[in-house]
């Protein structure tokens, strides 16, 4: 079981949280878990939409102290 990779995309407007996630997803191995940190509220909808469309796995999504913590697993 690999460690969770944290992607700190707080306070960024370009390329933005979903682009960051796509970058790191390409680097990850199947089965890896990635945790995206974002201060952009749109991320909470954007990420699940992409994850479901591509066929990866949503693990969890929660907002703690104004920061979204979104965990996903690379499925293919």
């Amino acid at each position: 079981m690999s460690e969770t990779k944290i992607i700190d995309a707080r306070n960024t407007y370009c390329p933005g949280p979903l682009m960051e996630l796509i970058t790191y997803m390409k680097q990850a191995d199947v089965g890896d878990t990635l945790e995206l940190l974002s201060t952009d509220n749109g991320t909470a909808d954007d990420v699940p939409e992409w994850i479901n469309k591509v066929g990866h796995e949503m693990v969890s999504s929660e907002k703690i102290d104004e920061v979204w913590h979104i965990k996903v697993r690379k499925a293919k």
Partner: peptide
């Protein structure tokens, strides 16, 4: 475009 709008900057 890769994400769910036509540019990364809203």
């Amino acid at each position: 475009y890769p994400i769910n709008r036509i540019h990364s900057i809203e």
